[in-house]
Simulated scan of single mutants.
Amino acid sequence: MEATLRIPQKADYETIASWVVDERACARWAGPLVPFPFTPESLPELLEVDICSSYCLSDNNNECVGFGQFWATDHGVVHIGRIIISPEFRGMGAGRLLCERLIDKALRSTGAHKVTLRVYRDNKVARSLYASLGFFVVEAKSTGDLLFMCARTNKTPKVDA
């Protein structure tokens, strides 16, 4: 699959909104602060996080097939979140492409040496993807429903998460 990472456009938020079909899907994707239903026009504001960068993964027709964000959390640490892939592109490698490109962009933009994320314990597909990208579970920072995961880059020696 040919794909590029780009800044979301107004029309992309309409596409992304169509992937979020109910309140449960919204909460699992965007967290408890994003209400459902929402309007596509309100998504940029609803998804805003301090010093956050949002990106779309677009196909060779420049259509948005995935969305994700990153933001710095601590010195040398960047967090990725709100990862979502178009239902039509799930299982085709789009999630891996989005994560790889988002992580690369996050590391280059922030100079971080660690990347973190949270994933629902029951989301086996996402957990497998993240593990294959080098993420490991940090149980001390996890909850009953959510796993906290961390990956280190080659920039620094291995230290505790």
Rank of each mutant, 00 (worst) to 15 (best):
C56K: 08
S58W: 01
D59M: 15
E100V: 05
R101C: 12
K105M: 15
G76L: 08
F70H: 00
Y120G: 14
D122L: 08
C64T: 11
G68W: 01
V119L: 03
L129D: 00
D104N: 15
T116H: 00
D59L: 10
Y120N: 02
H75P: 09
A94W: 10
G111T: 05
G68V: 05
S86K: 02
K105I: 07
L57K: 05
K114F: 02
I80P: 04
H75C: 12
E100T: 09
I80D: 10
C56W: 10
R108W: 09
F89Y: 11
S109E: 13
L133C: 00
R108V: 06
D74S: 07
F70L: 00
N60I: 15
R127F: 11
I80L: 04
S132W: 07
Y120K: 04
D122Y: 00
G68A: 00
F70A: 03
A112K: 03
C64K: 06
S58G: 13
F67G: 01
S109P: 10
F67K: 13
R127T: 03
A112V: 08
L129R: 02
L57V: 12
F136N: 14
H79N: 10
G68C: 01
H113A: 07
N61V: 12
V119S: 04
N61H: 10
S132G: 10
G81P: 09
S86A: 11
A94S: 06
S58C: 09
L133T: 02
V78Y: 05
G134R: 00
E88Q: 14
S109F: 02
I85W: 06
N62T: 14
A72D: 10
G68M: 03
A106T: 04
S109N: 05
L129M: 01
E63A: 08
R96A: 14
A112G: 02
H79Q: 10
R108S: 07
I103F: 08
G111H: 03
R90M: 08
S86E: 08
L98F: 06
Y120D: 03
A72E: 15
L117S: 02
H113Y: 04
E63H: 06
G111Y: 12
D59E: 09
L97P: 13
G111Q: 04
V65H: 01
E88V: 10
L107D: 03
D104M: 12
S58V: 11
V119W: 01
H79T: 09
G81E: 12
V78L: 13
R90G: 07
L129A: 08
G68F: 01
H79V: 13
P87Y: 01
V77M: 07
P87S: 12
G81V: 00
F70N: 01
N62Y: 04
L107I: 11
G91D: 07
E63D: 14
L97I: 13
